[in-house]
């Protein structure tokens, strides 16, 4: 089993993702430079956070046209698991691999803090092994994480159960106070219709060691590892 972590100019969570997979989970992991036209033999792709191309124009707008993104789109359309984290989520939105768009945080500030998340769907490769009753704790760090879907799209997301994570309080209640950026419906993460592409603003790769505040990000990586192991063995 092998994971690929994309690297764009300005990515800055690529090494965190690599560390989480390689050193914490012991999974063979490779960096994939954005100029590559092929992703090689990887089983899952992480689109990491950061400020690809300095967030020029719009977050993720230019990265989306990097050569590697065509290969990522092919990989995704073939059912391969893809996780976009923070700026990676923004890139997947710009690439139209996920629906909706991202606006600046409602409270006009860059927000960097630990938040609570409610996992709303275990039916994705990245959430299958998240415990049922667990409220997840992991950090957010973004200035543009205010997920926007118009009424029609929001209804579609609900109908198809595409909302994967919502911001909540410590007890799992979805409240306005627990929404760090003004996202519609407290949305913190969504998946595509085929459910193999997931995007989220919080950082699971920064929550893999208790001594750094939380290891709940491991649930996500364990999920996809379990998912891929099952696929290999069955």
């Amino acid at each position: 089993m092998k994971f690929g972590v994309l690297v764009f100019p300005g990515s800055n969570c690529d090494h965190d993702a690599y560390h989480a997979l390689k050193h914490i989970h012991g999974i063979d992991t490779t960096f994939i430079w954005h100029k590559e036209t092929e992703i090689g033999s990887v089983d899952a792709i992480i689109v990491p956070g950061g400020f690809s191309y300095g967030d020029y124009l719009r977050s993720g707008a230019i990265a989306r046209f990097s050569p590697v993104m065509n290969a990522v789109a092919d990989f995704a359309s073939g059912g391969g698991p893809v996780l976009g984290i923070c700026n990676g989520f923004q890139i997947l939105l710009e690439a139209r691999l996920l629906p909706g768009t991202m606006m600046a945080n409602e409270q006009l500030r860059f927000t960097c803090k630990l938040v609570h998340l409610k996992c709303e769907s275990r039916n994705t490769p990245f959430t299958g092994s998240v415990p049922d009753t667990q409220t997840l704790r992991m950090p957010v760090a973004h200035g543009e994480g205010n997920y926007y879907a118009d009424d029609e799209l929001y209804k579609k997301l609900l109908d198809r159960n595409q909302v994967v994570f919502r911001y909540c309080d410590a007890n799992g209640n979805i409240t306005p106070e627990s929404n760090p950026n003004g996202s519609v419906g407290n949305i913190a993460g969504i998946c595509n219709e085929s459910r193999n592409v997931v995007g989220m603003m919080p950082h699971p790769e920064r929550a893999v060691e208790k001594r750094l505040g939380s290891d709940h990000g491991r649930f996500l990586f364990n999920s996809v590892i379990d998912n891929l192991s099952y696929a290999v063995n069955s």
Binding site: M103, A104, N105, E106, L108, N146, Y148, G182
Partner: peptide, 10 residues
């Protein structure tokens, strides 16, 4: 219809 935080702050 879209919130403009930069405009609002200014």
């Amino acid at each position: 219809s879209i919130l403009d935080p930069k405009g609002k702050a200014s």
